[in-house]
């Protein structure tokens, strides 16, 4: 049984917010899909820190959320790796500027 005092809680949530904001800043300034993938993983790191206080209320729910986050992150990696492969095949590059519009062409 471990106490999380106010200072620790403040540090954890502040670090979580800082990592999330840095990840947002990285995402909006990303020029290729790989940097976008890395910024999304950073967002998941911030989510992990934000989950930590939940263990003080309901540990089982906290563990379940951690597992769901891990699955979500793995699926996101899968989708983005596929997107990287497809973009490289079609556009011969990783730059997000190569994608001018969304959707499939008929």
């Amino acid at each position: 049984m471990i106490d999380v005092d106010v200072s620790q809680l403040t540090v954890i949530l502040t670090v979580s917010g800082a990592i999330l904001l840095v990840a947002y800043l990285t995402a909006i300034s990303a020029k290729d899909l790989i940097r976008l993938l890395i910024s999304l993983e950073l967002m998941f790191a911030a989510v992990f820190l934000a989950i930590l206080p939940l263990f003080t209320i309901s540990p089982a729910t906290g563990y379940a959320l951690v597992i769901i986050t891990a699955f979500t992150s793995s699926t996101e990696l899968l989708v983005l790796v596929t997107a990287i492969i497809l973009l490289d095949r079609r556009k011969r590059g990783m730059d997000v500027e190569k994608v001018a519009v969304g959707g499939d062409s008929l």
């Binding site: 106490d3 999380v4 106010v6 809680l9 403040t10 003080t56 540990p59």
Partner: peptide, 12 residues
């Protein structure tokens, strides 16, 4: 953040 928290049930 004004209240201490307590982590319980680590064996769940």
């Amino acid at each position: 953040a004004t209240q201490d928290l307590e982590i319980t049930g680590q064996g769940v």
